[in-house]
Nucleic acid binder design. Sequence first.
DNA 1: TCCGACCGTTGTGTATACATTGGAGGGGTC
DNA 2: GACCCCTCCAATGTATACACAACGGTCGGA
Lengths: 227, 227
Amino acid sequence: MRASDRAYRTLRTEVLDGSLEPGTVLQEVEQATRLGVSRTPVREALRQLAADGLVDASGRGAVVTALSRDDIAALYELREALEAKAAALAAQRGDAVPFLLIRDRLLGAPQLLAQGEPGLVPYFDIVDDLDDAIEEAAANPFLATALRSVQLHSARIRRFSRHNPERLRAAAGEHLLIVEAILARDAELASQATHVHLHMSLTNALATAPGTVGEADEGTALGPRVA
Amino acid sequence: MRASDRAYRTLRTEVLDGSLEPGTVLQEVEQATRLGVSRTPVREALRQLAADGLVDASGRGAVVTALSRDDIAALYELREALEAKAAALAAQRGDAVPFLLIRDRLLGAPQLLAQGEPGLVPYFDIVDDLDDAIEEAAANPFLATALRSVQLHSARIRRFSRHNPERLRAAAGEHLLIVEAILARDAELASQATHVHLHMSLTNALATAPGTVGEADEGTALGPRVA
DNA sequence: TCCGACCGTTGTGTATACATTGGAGGGGTC
DNA sequence: GACCCCTCCAATGTATACACAACGGTCGGA
């Protein structure tokens, strides 16, 4: 694998899981040293992250972007537009088979979630596979690109709902409803069920998320951190 | 301005206006020579174009992407989801002033279009300013990013409607309806008016566009061209 | 003591040299 | 004659060197 890809994936993972907090300044030389590659692939990775909206490259050094509560609300507005459309298209066009499989897996989700922490990974695998199945069924490359972008940012929020099993159980039910609507080829219902799911999800996210995702509580006057 | 920005803008303009046709292979050394810069900024520009979806960078050399009729339909599906949402948000949140100004300008659009070719630039300026005003009024940075992406691809299609004054006059009326809905703070109407406009626009685009936008009719067996 | 200018340091932008990979073409063999 | 393999070449990937611009610190003057 190319060094630039490794650099990109490493940095992206660190931004998504919060080990690189918002406000962190990523400097080319510094990251090149840390990642054991030269500046060239790091530059490329930082440009990519900037295109993703995960860092802000204006000026000197790339700064990891913050996700304010307003940003989360805005992200969900976009998700609603995109995912409702995607669900509707999937209901119209999609092949039933993958959704049948996902339905079965979703029916087992409450058991998974009852296991606590170890069940979370397989649970989120189901949700991710559902996203992929809808994206595939919608058969629209432009929509797919836009969906991947919002999924990227949504991943930064997900870690807050990880510790809310009650919400996850409810979400599993909402996902099931979406799958049923797609299987019934009811585009309108699929769209509305998605709308409902995102509304509940946003409510939970805003209730769970701190003022600004990942922003350090200590030392706001310390200026940007350099990692 | 940075050399990489100049390279990016030059290449992007050439892709959008069709002077670099789909299938054209853009090689780093070649473009570096042509644009009078080194490979480094060209690499950056090509990466950016790939992120935009204007070139396909898989494998060796970046290939200018084609826009099939299916792609155009898919693009309009995404536009509908995004622009309907944006118009609705603009109706809910937007400041009326910019839309009042645009309404006045749109009322003069038929006169502009009656001038033929010289009126086209100011006409499309009005449309672009309306897009910007809606984007601004929607006050959603994620939606704004997605909108800019579809506008980029839409620009590749626009040159087909340039020579259809009748359609442009109708489109001006549809835009006016959207503006009126936003001014009336009627989110549902703004959304539906956008839906209608895009439906008509797509119908026209598919009627006007060749099988694959910009694809050479001669020599499909010649393999990719190198520019 | 405070303000401003100059210089040093640091970081990014660009160019170029070197490494590596992928592919095309030719030759050999089955 | 066709297919496979080997070799060579060209284009991309990576590293590094150089140039320029911005920020900070210090020194001098008011």
